[in-house]
């Protein structure tokens, strides 16, 4: 039998030192310092006049940060050779990230980021041309109240239809022609206990539009 026990696990290490979160890049860091350059194209039909101030270029998630000039060009200085993911960060628009590889001789190649098949190379032009892919959709669209939605709502239809049957049909009944038809129909019903379906319909359709309503009533009754 387990002894009843409760213990407390404290969460922090007081004696330990601060953690250094920044690790040097694992790839062989060359002595040379290179630049990554490119151009950001503002989203079309964007109304924001100063999109440059909101746009930042993050290399390896903020290890190097670049800023956009008025014409959209950007340059990242002092980047050692290695492999970098270049992201354009904008609060409203999404840009595709690009992987930029700088070899030890300073040759630069840019390719698409593929996290699953990391060896697959689909080259993209360098200097980079970054175009806004889409606008971020942050919000759910609230359902708007429309009259058609309301009318075609099954609940409403269920309410309106019986109303129609109750209010309109008795009015139609007052029409003498329909009365006659119905009478005839009643006679047939009396004669044969269960009328033939084909006859039933035939008599209906010969009556034109008005018997149509009668049929609806008949259906309703059967329900």
């Amino acid at each position: 039998m387990c002894r009843m026990l409760s213990s407390i696990v404290p969460l922090l290490l007081l004696a330990a030192n601060v953690l250094c979160a920044v690790n040097p890049s694992d790839d062989e860091v060359g002595v040379g310092r290179y630049i990554i350059e490119g151009r950001v194209f503002p989203p079309e039909n964007s109304d924001a006049s100063n999109w440059q101030i909101d746009t930042r270029i993050h290399v390896n998630a903020g290890e190097y940060i670049g800023f956009v000039k008025n014409d959209g060009t950007f340059t990242l200085h002092n980047v050692p050779s290695g492999s970098y993911v270049v992201e354009i960060v904008h609060p409203d628009y999404m840009y595709e990230p690009v992987r930029v590889e700088i070899n030890s001789r300073g040759r630069i190649r840019a390719r698409r980021v593929n996290y699953i098949q990391t060896s697959q190379v689909i080259q993209v032009p360098y200097p980079l041309k970054m175009k806004a892919a889409t606008r971020f959709r942050y919000f759910q669209v609230r359902e708007q109240w429309r009259i058609t939605d309301f009318l075609f709502n099954p609940m409403v239809i269920m309410m309106v239809l019986p109303l129609f049957l109750i209010m309109i049909l008795p009015k139609m009944m007052n029409d003498p022609e329909t009365k006659e038809d119905l009478k005839q129909f009643g006679d047939i019903a009396k004669m044969t206990e269960f009328p033939e379906m084909s006859e039933y319909f035939a008599s209906f359709f010969s009556g034109g539009a008005k018997p149509g309503a009668a049929k609806a009533k008949q259906n309703k009754k059967r329900q």
């Binding site: 100063n50 101030i53 800023f67 956009v68 000039k69 008025n70 340059t75 200085h77």
Partner: peptide, 9 residues
């Protein structure tokens, strides 16, 4: 505006 005008290392 805060826009970058020039940069050099």
């Amino acid at each position: 505006t805060g826009v970058l005008l020039w940069e050099w290392p």
